[in-house]
Nucleic acid binder design. Structure first.
Lengths: 152, 152
DNA sequence: TGTGTGAGTTTGAAAAACAAACCATCAAGC
DNA sequence: GCTTGATGGTTTGTTTTTCAAACTCACACA
């Protein structure tokens, strides 16, 4: 067989199609911090305003954020996470933890968990509760023709 | 106080500075699947070759990947995850799970965990083992001037 | 000598990001 | 009623980046 020309079918790629552009995840970060308004998001992310407009529209279209009118006259809107958006929080927490570990001396933000400890997020298998390690995983490819190494 | 002009100091932003550009996380995905060579990564991600060159260089410089010579004459290299790179696997797993849930009917790839179950990754607090929910988190900002809402 | 493989570079055109200024709608103060 | 200030965007013109396709270089193998 020869030249694939098609990329690997993959939910990671799909997810990045929604939140993978520059600023998208920073917008989500702000929304999670309780910053819901255009001007404040623009300030805190340093995103150009036209780009921010485009990112917000994409996130709303994809069902990650929801545009809520908070003032009638003049019409004013703010952005809130949907349940699907809320489910991206762990992605941000894992990225933050990675950045703290490898890119920072002192973490700029720490989350206190309700159990009393400062949060150190870990990814575990829901079934058995074990922390996920690479050696414990075996990939099964469900799209005909594709395997770990690529298209056959 | 007035015009910040500086974005929020944040490890998420820092992490995205390393892996946030288009294709970076797809490159990492391939490397995790055991695809270590330039041509194969280019095929499976559909990244333009010059862009791939730039991304690989950045990932190597940042200590996420390691360039390993696997052939002497002619010199040939492949890319392997470092321990720091390996720590990004949970980020990809959470993104994949999100994509599976919200963007796909049938997941293209399923990971079988050593416990026997198909992997459903969850993010928990390392201290208490509880799944992380937004209401259970309180942010503490360690950079003077910054709070949840922004620069004061 | 000629073909193939692998890891990139080079090139020129198209798309995206950027900064800065601008606009529309209103409320409140003077 | 005129001006100032918020807020949530658009518009404009320039700079960067991306992109596809072709090319290069070093070698192995036949």
């Amino acid at each position: 067989m020869t030249a694939p020309a098609t990329p690997r079918p993959c939910s990671i790629a799909d997810a990045l199609g929604v939140v993978g552009e520059k600023y998208s995840l920073l917008v989500l970060r702000e929304v999670f911090f309780g910053v819901h308004r255009f001007d404040a998001i623009a300030r805190n992310t340093a995103a150009p305003r036209d780009i921010l407009t485009a990112r917000l529209r994409r996130l709303v279209d994809a069902g990650v954020l929801e545009k809520v009118r908070y003032n009638e006259r003049p019409p004013r809107y703010e952005y809130r996470p949907t349940p699907a958006g809320e489910e991206l929080r762990p992605v941000l927490l894992m990225l933050l933890r990675w950045g703290d570990r490898h890119l920072r001396d002192v973490p700029p933000t720490v989350f206190e968990h309700s159990c009393g400890a400062d949060l150190d997020p870990v990814t575990v298998c829901r079934a058995c509760g074990e922390e996920v390690h690479s050696e414990a995983l075996t990939a099964r490819f469900q799209v005909p023709g594709w395997s770990a190494s690529g298209l056959s």
